[in-house]
Nucleic acid binder design. Structure first.
Lengths: 111, 111
DNA sequence: ACAATTGTGTAAGGTTTCCTGACATGGTTT
DNA sequence: AAACCATGTCAGGAAACCTTACACAATTGT
């Protein structure tokens, strides 16, 4: 209802392509996963699958690492950022809920 | 200059994922390529790489085939559609050219 | 100062995924 | 009837991916 979740977030890209697109080594990509900075999905057979969003994230990560930031630190930053993101999400939903309560669409008996 | 060519057109998806996303068999997907309905890129090693746009196209193709249209016919349709598309493109560029000639931005000596 | 951790390379051995080519087949066209 | 269409399937081989392990310089923590 809230989300259009388009191409950008679909996990459909294999690690080789990610390597080519980011310039990182597969080793690095897997290591950042081990440090829980990215979370690819897996194919039934076990192959990693990334999204374009993941790729963008990887580039950001790589930049920070180049600036001497440790994975540990990066992870903290990311959790921080996500927390704020969630807070906004919650506020939005609360407001939406209130609006619905006041003027809300009733659930029609059928489509 | 005209094109933002985003995620949708980047050829980054392997045939297995395309199979899963479309429900077509790999055999079918390769066959439609043989009939020149789709044009994946290749990895250095020879693996096919598709875009989301390709996937959408494949679904359309599959629908037509289900309606009994032959690949040959589908190809004609596609060429037709593309021709019109190109005509529009040309017109657009012509008009743009005229505008530039009249009021045009001159090429500044530097950025 | 020394121990522990970080980030990355590399190699081995194994599994999954993809490739081409070929044969088979039931429906359509011509 | 001969040719073509669309698809399945099988074989053999290559590419891509996986995990585990060892190495090592550089940095961080005690």
């Amino acid at each position: 209802m809230t989300n259009d979740f388009s191409y950008k977030d679909k996990k459909v890209i294999t690690i080789g392509i990610v390597r080519d697109l980011t310039g990182l080594s597969e080793r690095q990509i897997r290591y950042y996963e081990e440090r829980r900075l990215i979370f690819p999905e897996r194919s039934p057979g076990g192959s990693r699958k990334y999204s374009f969003a993941d790729i963008e994230l990887l580039v950001e990560i790589a930049n920070k690492i180049e600036d001497g930031v440790q994975t540990h630190e990066i992870r903290k930053e990311m959790l921080q950022a996500q927390k704020k993101q969630n807070q906004n999400e919650v506020r939005r939903k609360m407001i939406q809920g209130q609006l619905n309560a006041q003027f809300g669409l009733r659930k029609g008996p059928s489509s």
